[in-house]
Nucleic acid binder design. Structure first.
Length: 609
DNA sequence: AAAAAAG
């Protein structure tokens, strides 16, 4: 039920989206509520107390998904685990797997809907994007024997449980990165993907991991005695909030599959995370620092890792995580490349990432998806010339104007990016004392404060959020109507990420940037980006751009990718410095014709993240 | 230069 302005908008949007989703193919048979989460009836083998070596880790063809892998929380209950390989596949359900004990092990419904109801749930964090606007996103792949992309989720055998969750998420059709990455991953190939936040990455690496864990033959989780958790998959991400978000999404995808997802990040009490780990983990989502801590305490072992995914890898390197990441991947007990399966996601593909790719991946496939932010006109971008000293009053004008035409008499959600943590605090204080309820998120705030700030913003309680770049990438905050670059970043990629916080869910968004002499290094890339996105470039900015042609980094030589597969460059001897590629990628451009065809009206949900 | 992340 709508509890805020933002929610009521979501509800309205979802009504339309649900109509589209319900027409999607591949529905599973209706299962009455009281029969759900139960071991499947009759034709299935009985509950196995002792999973013999060959005892049905793989179900009969076409039926292997019949049972969710309900054996999580199996610590201490997993009898016969020593018998060798009697795990997985969905047969290991023990009757009462859901009713066991005090009910603490009952899986929380991550969709927040009534577990019994078979209605299309209202998904508050519906993050779909108008797919029609993205038909022209180019895709490039290279490598040996690239599996062909799929055009629908139904084409991929992800199984009933996962398919059901996909429908509950109201994903109607896969995004470009999903169309390519999921088949690659299901073919057990390593993947180097250049894709931006907002391209649907999370599902792209979660679906194959969950599916792989469900079908794979893995030994039982560590018995309760052992305090060392042995996840089968590890997902690393740069910021705590991003880890939390990935965890939340992964829980939805894994709901009632029996695949257990746990998150570990710094700034939060470690004890609760330790308890979660003790109760068993298949997929661990973590920030590097906390994971190293857990590894040093021997509370996590990586020896069972079959899947490794690194999200926002360039960001993690920017943040100085390379030593920790190499420590985690290369110095601990993680199986080597080729044994495990690795997916590396990065917005760009500079030399450091190329090195990481050759060290972490084996025989990988390179995938590049065009940037989302530049090829859409869903976001109206404005640049205004504002002197440093005038910024606050200018912001005030914007907020007043916005309040005037605000819907429901409420302030639309506005995300204000500033350069420094101090600046964030002082702007928040100033806004609050001037009658604009604001909060702030940055690295000097406690984790509790950060999460509280996000909640307060999302709910509309404080419809203005002042943020540093901690919130620039990956964070999905639905219904942001306006992104203000109070201080412009020094990097055009950061700008793209920031404005990408709006214009989501198929709605238009507004992005306003305050520009002055201090930002002249951005003039060129900014005006190029705006031109590419069919935005009106102010004449004064164009003049800045020509005047300041010395500064700023060029935008990708006109290409729309974050990078290209350096293995294809015969100019590799140059040292790979020309990693942005200068277009000329005629092969594999765009999707196969008809790939995006379909009777989806605007506003129909897709699986963008 | 600032930001983030392990306390």
């Amino acid at each position: 039920m709508p509890t805020s302005w933002a929610d009521s908008v979501a509800a309205a949007d979802n009504a339309a989206a649900a109509a589209g989703a319900s027409s999607g193919g591949g529905r599973s048979a209706y299962v009455p509520p009281h029969l759900r989460n139960r071991p499947p009836p009759s034709s299935e083998p009985p509950v196995l107390a002792h999973g013999g070596p060959s005892s049905g880790n793989i179900a009969p063809a076409g039926n292997r998904w019949a049972a969710p892998r309900n054996d999580y929380g199996r610590s201490g209950y997993s009898s016969g685990g020593g018998g060798g390989g009697g795990r997985g596949g969905g047969w290991n359900n023990r009757s009462g797997g859901w009713d066991r004990g005090s009910g603490r092990d009952r899986e929380v419904n991550p969709f927040g809907d009534d577990e019994g109801a078979d209605v299309e749930p209202v998904e508050q964090e519906n993050t779909g994007i108008n797919f029609d606007a993205y038909e022209d996103i180019p895709v490039e792949t290279s490598g040996d024997n690239v599996p062909p992309p799929v055009n629908t989720f139904a084409e991929i055998d992800l199984g009933d449980a996962l398919n059901k969750n996909i429908r509950r998420c109201k994903y109607v059709k896969p995004t470009p990165v999903q169309r390519y990455a999921i088949p690659i991953s299901l073919a057990n190939r390593d993947l180097m993907a250049c894709a931006q936040t907002g391209s649907g990455k999370t599902a792209a690496f979660c679906f194959p991991i969950i599916s792989g864990i469900m079908t794979g033959q893995f030994p039982p989780r560590a018995p309760h005695m052992s305090r060392t958790a042995c996840p089968l998959a590890l997902i690393l991400s740069p910021t705590r909030e991003l880890s939390i978000q990935i965890h939340n999404e992964a829980r939805k995808f894994a709901y009632q599959t029996g695949v257990k997802v746990v998150v570990a990040y710094g700034g939060a009490p470690i004890n609760q995370q330790l308890r979660e780990l003790e109760r068993g983990v298949d997929i661990l989502v973590a920030t590097p620092g906390r994971l190293v801590d857990l590894l040093e305490r021997a509370r996590v072992s990586l020896q069972m890792i079959k899947y490794l995914a690194l999200d926002e890898a360039d960001r993690m390197l920017d943040m100085g995580f390379e030593p920790q990441i190499r420590n985690i991947v290369q110095q601990m007990d993680m199986p080597p490349p080729g044994v495990r399966q690795t997916m590396l996601f990065s917005a760009t593909f500079p030399k450091e990432i190329q090195r990481l790719a050759s060290d972490f991946l084996a025989g990988y496939i390179f995938l590049a998806v065009g940037r989302v932010g530049s090829s859409t006109d869903l976001i109206v971008q404005r640049v205004e010339y504002v002197q440093e000293t005038d910024k606050r009053s200018h912001l005030m004008d914007l907020l007043h104007a916005q309040r005037a035409n605000g819907t429901h008499g409420k302030q639309a959600l506005t995300l204000v990016f500033v350069e420094t943590k101090k600046g964030a605090d002082s702007l928040e204080y100033w806004l609050c004392s001037n009658g604009f309820p604001a909060t702030t998120i940055h690295g000097d705030r406690s984790q509790q404060e950060r999460e509280q700030a996000l909640r307060s913003f999302k709910s509309g309680h404080t419809p203005i959020l002042v943020a540093t770049d901690v919130a620039a990438r990956g964070l999905d905050i639905p219904h942001v109507a306006h992104v203000v670059n109070f201080d412009l970043p020094n990097d055009i990629d950061d700008y793209v990420h920031r404005i990408g916080r709006t214009g989501r869910a198929g709605k238009s968004g507004l992005a306003t940037a305050f520009f002055n002499e201090n930002n002249s290094s951005m003039a060129r890339s900014l005006s190029e980006l705006m031109q590419e996105a069919n935005q009106e470039v102010p004449a004064w900015l164009a003049r800045f751009a020509t005047r300041a042609s010395f500064g700023g980094k060029n935008r990708r030589g006109g290409g729309r990718f974050g990078g290209r597969d350096f293995r294809r460059d015969n100019s590799y001897s140059r040292g790979g410095s020309d990693y942005y590629g200068a277009g000329n990628m005629s092969s594999g451009y765009g999707a196969p014709s008809g790939g995006y065809g379909g009777a989806y009206g605007s506003g129909v949900t897709s699986a963008w993240d």
